[in-house]
Amino acid sequence: MQNLGIDVLFKGTNMLRLLGGLWVSLRISLIAVGFSIALGIPLGMLMTKDSKIVKAIARLYLEIVRVMPQMVLLFIVFFGTTRIFGWNLNAELASVIVFSFWGCAEMSDLVRGAFISIPKHQYESARALGMNSFTVFFFVILPQTLRRLLPTSINLVTRMIKTTSLVMMIGVVEVLKVGQQIIEANRNSSPNAAFGVYGTVLLLYFIGCWPISMLSKYLEKKWSNS
C-alpha cells in the first residue's frame, strides 16, 4: 500500500487550518447569498412589470452575467478597479461584490420566472371571489410563488458555494489555497500529500453541498404537484 499522504492532515493543526479555509469560502458565499436575496427579489418583481426601459436594462444585465465567466468578473473588479479608480479593494471584498452581482442576477431571474409561471386565472378567480389586490397577492400568489421559488433558490446556494472556489485565483486564502500551502510545507516529509489533501478538499465541498442539493430536490418533488 502506497503512502497516500492522508497522514499530513493529522499533523499539527493542518485539518483545522483546512476547515478554517472552508469557512472563508462559506463566509463569502453566505454574505453574497444574503445580498443576492435582498436585492434579487425586488429586482425580479420589478422585472415582471411591463416597462420597456426596465426590461431593456434587465435584459442587458442578465445577458452580461449569463455570458461572462465569474472569473472574468472577479478579475475586472479586483484588478480593474485598482487601475481605473485607484481603489484598493481587498480580495475578499472584491469576491463578495462579484458574487453578489452574479447571484442577484440569477435570483431576480428565478423570482421573475416564478411570478410569471402563476397562471392568470389565479389572479382572476381570486378577484372574482372578492379579494382585493393586497390579499390576492399575499394569500394566493405569494404562497404559490414561494413554492416554485424555494427549491431553485436553494440550488443557487450550492452553486454559490461551488463558485467561490474561484476566489483563490485572486489570492483569497480559502480551503484550496490552504491545501496548497500544506502540500508545499510537507513537500519533503510527505511527497504524496497532494492526493490526501486535494481528495479531502473535494470531499469537504461534497459534504457541504450535497445535503443542500438533496433538500432542494426534496422540496421540488414535494411541491411539484400542488
Binding site: 461551488k162 504524496n192 481528495g199
Partner: peptide, 19 residues
C-alpha cells in the same frame, strides 16, 4: 454536481500522478 470544477481539476492534475 456537488463539487467545483477547480477542485476536480486540482485533484485530477496534482493528485492522480501521486498514485
Amino acid at each position: 454536481r456537488n463539487t467545483p470544477l477547480l477542485v476536480q481539476l486540482f485533484f485530477l492534475y496534482f493528485a492522480l500522478p501521486k498514485i
